[in-house]
């Protein structure tokens, strides 16, 4: 089967996110970059499906030229080739991103045939727009379910499981389909030495996308009010246990 996975390069923040002085972006001076976590799992899901059913997987991203790093990483853990839609003007809004991805996928399919499955992450770690995959699916006229915590393919259908308040739901999507994956669907593998070598040689195509802007515009980033609590240190080591239980009694959770 043929699979396309769409990923996003995002900063890997530690315990605090700093913003540039103009408020336009995250200050990444001391940060590394990674693939958005849900999408790391989408890459792993694609690798497992190709191992099980044969075929090949393409990883696609829209972002700065440096996002080639995330494409090569995905190739090192089982993707066959990468496509970079290189932008030079910062973050694109969700509609614009979806339009560019739709065009790119349509062009890839015109050359090599349709993808049976297109995978996204449930939402990007940074912008959290919750919509790009859904927009692409609609533009391509394909069924789409987000939030997959289970994914398998059999008899021309993708079986998706997801968590809901009432229990674990299942969906059965006829292929070709689009699925948004959530972390927990699998545990992503680490690249092998062989995978790393392969990723260095692999083909990564680079295009300059163009698409009309949408109606959601980011004006400025800001930090939420800091939750600085006057931490009361109840003690050191096991001797603090009675003080902890006193607090639990005050809070009424000992019943």
């Amino acid at each position: 089967m043929r699979i396309c996975v769409c990923v996003k390069r995002v900063p890997a923040p530690g315990s605090k996110i700093n913003i540039t002085a103009d408020g336009q972006q995250v200050d990444t001076t001391n940060l590394g970059f990674t693939t958005s976590p849900h999408e790391e799992c989408a890459v792993e899901a694609a690798a497992q499906l190709v191992e099980e059913h044969g075929g090949e997987a393409t990883v696609l991203t829209l972002g700065p030229a440096e996002a080639e790093e995330q494409l090569r990483y995905a190739i090192s853990v089982g993707m066959h080739r990468g496509v970079l839609l290189a932008t030079a003007d910062g973050e694109w809004d969700p509609q614009r991103t979806a339009r560019a991805l739709t065009t790119a996928i349509t062009e890839l399919e015109a050359v090599d045939g349709p993808f049976d499955l297109i995978l996204f992450g449930n939402e990007s770690a940074d912008a959290g727009g919750f919509q790009v995959g859904i927009r692409v699916a609609h533009a391509l006229g394909r069924p789409m379910v987000n939030g997959a915590k289970g994914l398998s393919v059999a008899d021309g259908a993708a079986s998706v499981e997801r968590e809901a308040d009432a229990g674990r739901e299942t969906y059965s999507l006829p292929l070709p389909a689009v699925v948004g994956v959530k972390e927990g669907v699998n545990l992503p593998r680490y690249p092998t030495m062989r995978g790393r070598l392969a990723s260095k040689k692999a083909e990564v195509a680079s295009n300059q996308p163009s698409a009309d802007a949408g109606g959601l515009a980011e004006q400025v980033l800001k930090s939420p009010p800091e939750r600085t609590s006057q931490t009361i240190v109840l003690g050191t080591g096991p001797d603090a246990a009675p003080a902890v239980v006193d607090v639990l009694e005050e809070l009424g959770v000992l019943s």
């Binding site: 940074d126 959290g128 109606g215 515009a217 980011e218």
Partner: peptide, 14 residues
Amino acid sequence: VRWGGSLLEDASLT
């Protein structure tokens, strides 16, 4: 909210 709430964004929707 961005980053699940650890960062905020002022945005406009037209």
